[in-house]
Amino acid sequence: METKQIGTTDLRIPPVAFGCNVLGWTMDRKQSFKVLDELYEMGFNYMDTADVYSRWVDGHEGGESERILGAWMKERGLRGRIIVATKVGMDVGQGHIDLSRSHITQQIEKSLHNLQTDYVDIYFSHRHDPNVEVADVLETYAGLIKEGKVRHVGASSFPLDVFKKAIALHEQHELPKYQIYQPEYSILHRTDFENGYQDFVLQNDIAVTNYWALANGFLTGKYESIDDIKGTSRESNLKKYFDDKGMRVLKALQQVSQDTGISQAGVTIARTIAQPGITAPIVSATKPGQLQAFREAATNSLSKDHLAMLNKASLDG
């Protein structure tokens, strides 16, 4: 499996990243270990988590995902072979987005404890904090890098002007560089990334691991009509996709799937991998069988005609 470099670092990751938000949420510890085992055996060793996962569940406080991932790495003796990315800044009890020095230094200790490790490979600013100067955030990260607790840093869902400022500060003042960026991006949500961010990351050697690549499961082909989601926990998140554009995309995915023998999820991930600037889409799975789409996407390239068909179907209007 061909790996891709993270920015200008020495890290290389597989073409699909595993979204660990499901660990301890829709999967218990036993099922999580089973999926992680198969994932690793297939060669996928980049794990994307966050201190806030899965605080949104009643009775959860955040850190559930990190704790399961940490326990799995410890029990299997795999820490040195896993590339771990976690994030800081979302509300884990403080009531607001927080990238202050005190919060970051507190949360990195919690994350390291949860993950049962003394360092993380990539530490993300989960969201931009407008109340903290960008330079101050980068200086905090510089301290963590110097202490050996963080190897590299990344940013998620930043306003483009703020992200550009962060890269300029790196160049002007030798502060840490955000080596990796994490936007929402899928065949159904193209505009934000493709209009500005895409050119910028390509010009500045910044890796991209995009989230919601499967649009909450809509693009897997599991749901063919809005009737399929009525009364389910996914209804509120998925109903917006059942418009003319969404149905065109599903039809095109189905056609490419039939032509290639690849699952619709595999086609969707492969299409994302093929886009300029994308290093590895983040995809979750809750059953070992769902990991087949990872392998399909990593080992198959879509033809120019199929990519053109998908791009045309996903145009607005």
Rank of each mutant, 00 (worst) to 15 (best):
Asn131His: 08
Gly148Val: 06
Val134Cys: 04
Tyr141Thr: 07
Val134Met: 08
Ala155Val: 14
Asp136Phe: 01
Gly143Val: 04
Ala155Asn: 09
Pro130Met: 00
Ala155Phe: 13
Lys149Gln: 09
Ala135Tyr: 09
Val132His: 05
His152Cys: 06
Asp129Ile: 03
Pro130Asn: 01
Asp136Pro: 04
Val153Lys: 02
His128Trp: 15
Ala155Trp: 13
His152Arg: 05
Ile145Tyr: 11
Tyr141Arg: 03
Val153Phe: 08
His128Ser: 13
Tyr141Met: 14
Asn131Phe: 08
Val134Trp: 01
Lys146Trp: 07
Val132Arg: 07
Gly154Trp: 12
Ser156Cys: 15
Phe158Pro: 02
Val153Ser: 05
Val150Cys: 06
Asp136Lys: 08
His152Gly: 06
Val150Asn: 00
Gly154His: 10
Ala155Glu: 09
Ser156Ile: 09
Ser156Gln: 07
Val150Gln: 03
Pro130Val: 00
Arg151Gln: 14
Tyr141Phe: 15
Ser157Phe: 06
Glu147Val: 04
Phe158Ser: 03
Arg151Ala: 11
Lys146Thr: 12
Val153Gln: 03
Leu138Ser: 07
Asp136Gln: 08
Ala155Lys: 11
Ala135Asn: 06
Glu147Met: 12
Pro130Gly: 00
Ala155Thr: 12
Val137Thr: 15
Leu138Gly: 07
Ala155His: 10
Phe158Lys: 08
Val137Phe: 10
Lys146Asp: 15
Gly148Pro: 10
Val132Gln: 09
Lys149Thr: 01
Ser156Glu: 05
Glu133Lys: 13
Ser157Tyr: 01
Val137Trp: 01
Ser156Gly: 05
Glu147Thr: 10
Val134Ile: 14
Val137Pro: 09
Ile145Lys: 08
Ile145Val: 12
Ser157His: 04
Arg151Lys: 15
Ala142Met: 09
Lys149Met: 04
Lys149Ser: 01
Val153Ile: 15
Tyr141His: 14
Leu144Trp: 14
Ala155Arg: 10
Gly148Tyr: 13
Lys146Arg: 15
Val134Glu: 00
Leu144Glu: 13
Pro130Thr: 01
Pro130Asp: 00
Pro130Phe: 00
Ile145Thr: 00
